[in-house]
């Protein structure tokens, strides 16, 4: 029976460790309201429906990646027939979402996903005042 204090201490430590993220969250005063992502003013439709992009944008990006690098598929035709250049920096960011910090990071940070390592190589378009960069065509990547 002499073990009782030890057992309780151990249990307490266990519970404290398991719930640590919760306490951290409270300490950091994070809210449960997700970040507001501004839709680009000039575009109504992403390359795929919003719900799909929210869930599976990585799958699309990987398919783009392998298609472009390995299969010479440089264009992507969306469901509505629009043809896009396959390019993370050139299409996704430059044409619509602005920069990695403004778009990707905000959600990833909130959701606590460690961002994929795209940005070890790919660059975020240089920030331009006034939000979304000009829809300059020709950006290859």
């Amino acid at each position: 029976m002499g073990d009782r204090p030890l057992i309780y201490a151990g249990l307490f430590l266990f519970v404290a460790l398991v719930t640590l993220p919760v306490w951290q969250g409270i300490a950091a005063q994070s809210s449960t309201v997700g970040p507001e992502l501004k839709a680009p003013a000039h575009k109504k439709q992403c390359v795929a429906p919003r719900a799909y992009m929210r869930e599976a944008h990585m799958e699309l990006l990987m398919a783009w990646r392998d298609g472009k690098v390995r299969k010479h598929e440089r264009h992507y035709t969306a469901a509505d027939g629009t043809v896009y250049n396959v390019s993370l920096t050139g299409t996704c960011l430059t044409q619509c979402h602005g920069s990695k910090e403004k778009f990707c990071d905000r959600c990833h940070e909130y959701a606590g996903v460690s961002a994929p390592n795209c940005w070890g190589c790919h660059t975020s378009p240089p920030a331009e005042p006034g939000g979304v960069a000009a829809v300059a065509a020709g950006g290859m990547r």
Binding site: G90, N117, C121, H122, P126, G139, M140, R141
Partner: peptide
């Protein structure tokens, strides 16, 4: 200044 039209590489 990197060329924005081409990716860099990673370690």
């Amino acid at each position: 200044t990197p060329n924005p039209d081409f990716p860099t590489r990673t370690t």
